[in-house]
């Protein structure tokens, strides 16, 4: 479903060379690596947010390397959620639909459906200020899922959560993965997190990606 082929990224004094990996459709993939190893850069390049030097990115067999971020139809959950600070939770989720041309009524239905699935119905009228780490991650995931993308890219979604929230968010992500039959790419520095979540695991080490058994 997602194929990264000989990806090379040059960011001044930091570079990643000839990265290749493949994630089959519907699988939950985890890319592990130490802090500063370039995991986020790879994820952002897949989403179209960083310029790449060479290589190709394929989604569903289509070469998306030169496409703009919005034309890749990827749901992106950045580290710390990065919610829009002037929108309520409902507006953030519905925005994901309306921006893709869905009607307001359809966006509303989708926002309510996702808020129910992710157990954030009680937060719909709230602003992001004051939400807990777990709530922010669930809202960010709902926002990424709103337009029904086929691939979800998540940047360390559990790293800033306490033990209880982590367990809740893990369960919710797994449930969403099964229900929506999506392909997930989740990056983390934690082996435990990778073992818990990953159906397909990769490790970024010394600038190379290797499959992790």
């Amino acid at each position: 479903m997602l194929k990264v082929d000989k990806l090379t990224i040059d960011l001044g004094n930091f570079s990643i060379r000839n990265i290749s990996f493949d994630i089959p459709r519907g699988k939950y993939a985890v890319l592990m690596g130490k802090s500063g190893s370039g995991k986020t850069t790879i994820l952002e390049s897949i989403c179209g947010l960083r310029n790449i030097k060479s290589g190709s990115i394929f989604i569903d067999g289509n070469n998306v390397t030169k496409l703009r971020p919005g034309d890749r139809f990827i749901g992106f959950v950045p580290q710390d959620g990065v919610l829009f600070s002037t929108m309520t939770v409902f507006e953030q989720i519905a925005f994901g639909c309306t921006v893709r041309g869905h009607s307001k009524a359809a966006s509303k239905v989708r926002a309510f459906e996702l808020s129910k699935d992710l157990d954030i119905e009680h937060l719909l009228d709230r602003n992001p200020q004051g939400l807990s780490g777990g709530e922010i991650q669930r809202v960010a995931l709902a926002r990424a899922l709103a337009s029904k993308p086929q691939l979800i890219c998540m940047d360390e979604p559990l790293s800033s959560l306490d033990e209880d929230s982590r367990e809740t968010v893990c369960d919710l992500i797994k449930r969403i993965h099964r229900k929506e039959n999506l392909t997930f790419l989740h990056i983390t520095h934690s082996q435990a997190e990778a073992d818990l979540m990953g159906e397909v695991k990769f490790k970024l080490s010394d600038g190379r990606v290797i499959a992790d058994a």
Binding site: E44, C47, G48, L49, R68, P69, G70, R72, I74, G75, F76, P78, V82, L83, F84, S85, T86, F95, G96, V99, R100, R143, A144, A146, S147
Partner: peptide, 27 residues
């Protein structure tokens, strides 16, 4: 204003202008 908010908006289907008017200007 966190520039990553604009990047999220771009992945959601906004162009630069839409991200600017809907995410940056209100803030």
């Amino acid at each position: 204003i966190d520039a990553r908010q604009e990047e999220v908006a771009l992945t959601m289907g906004c162009n630069r202008s839409k991200a600017f008017w809907t995410v940056v200007i209100p803030q």
